[in-house]
């Protein structure tokens, strides 16, 4: 089963939930944790996994053979991203704009364009105790997170549980990370910002037809509108974590909640049981 942890708003506790859920389950199950927040990956801060492998992520960008090129401009015409331009008898390429779609090289009538790898990030993997760990890291200065996220997700294994930590927001990197999940846990906080972004995140998962439930973090601050929203929209609140100075301090020191306060482990196991039940129920009704 693949469970993604998303939020819309940043800093609501995705990393806290992803790391504690993975650790809580690792005694009984084979668990894999994939950190797809490749712009700011933080799961490793809490797990400190032993890294055993590393791979560079590149996207194929065009390289023009000037001898074969007739400056027909076909490549510049077909490029949807303005990543290649023909100026007189020179061809300029802009790797930062290139999406690596391959249109220019495939469609060049002279076969003058080959592709070379442009490095945009790295993927690392390893292990912490019973948790198999993978994360991606976008290179500073690079813009495109989705290809790095795709590389992280290529490493989803046949373990029985895969937990995917999703970046904040609602746009393409979020979609890339959530795609293929059986369930999405949305972590939010009971504030107007949390509510506004939760509603956007719910729209995103609905667009992807992935069922969702909510973890309410820092309960006790703010107001009751998030809980009201969930009940009005029949979204289950699966777990409530209070605003607690000790939890905040553990977090600040990079200690996973279930490691610092083991009494929380049973809550995360219950969270998993609820998610499993919801997924089973949904699959059953889909078959009918």
């Amino acid at each position: 089963m693949r469970i993604s942890i998303a939020s819309g708003k940043g800093g609501t506790g995705k990393t806290l939930v992803a790391t504690s859920l993975a650790l809580a389950l690792s005694d009984r199950h084979h668990v894999q944790l994939l950190d797809c927040d490749v712009e700011e990956p933080n799961d490793h801060v809490f797990l400190r996994p032993e890294i055993t492998g590393r791979e560079t992520v590149t996207i194929p960008v065009p390289k023009v053979n000037e001898e074969k090129c007739t400056h027909c401009r076909k490549c510049a015409e077909v490029c949807a991203y303005n990543a290649i331009a023909v100026l007189g008898n020179r061809v300029l390429t802009f790797p930062q704009l290139c999406h690596g779609c391959g249109a220019c090289s495939y469609l060049c009538p002279e076969k003058a364009i080959t592709e070379v790898g442009h490095e945009i990030g790295t993927v690392e993997w390893g292990r912490f105790g019973g948790v198999a760990f993978v994360h991606g890291r976008l290179t500073v200065g690079e813009a495109m997170a989705p290809p790095v996220i795709r590389k992280v997700k290529e490493r989803v294994n046949n373990y029985d549980i895969a937990i995917v930590d999703v970046p904040p927001g609602t746009s393409c990197p979020v979609v890339e990370a959530i795609k293929g999940s059986d369930f999405c846990i949305l972590v939010t906080e009971p504030t107007p910002f949390g509510l506004n972004d939760l509603a956007l995140a719910v729209e995103t998962v609905q667009e992807l037809a992935v069922p969702c439930g909510v973890v309410l973090n820092r309960a006790g601050i703010g107001d009751s509108r998030v809980v009201d929203y969930c009940s009005e929209n029949s979204i289950p609140v699966l777990l409530t974590i209070p605003l607690d100075l000790e939890i905040a301090r553990l977090y600040s020191r990079g200690i996973a909640l279930v490691a610092g306060m083991p009494q929380w482990k049973s809550s995360f196991l219950e969270l998993f049981d609820m998610v499993t039940e919801l997924v089973v129920e949904r699959n059953r009704s889909a078959k009918r």
Partner: peptide, 23 residues
């Protein structure tokens, strides 16, 4: 390259609009 076409249908969330398929 974006695995956006499956069973001759476009999966819009995956399509990056490069237009290679169209060409």
């Amino acid at each position: 390259r974006f695995h956006a076409i499956r069973d001759f249908q476009v999966e819009e969330a995956s399509c990056e609009g490069c237009g290679l398929c169209h060409h």
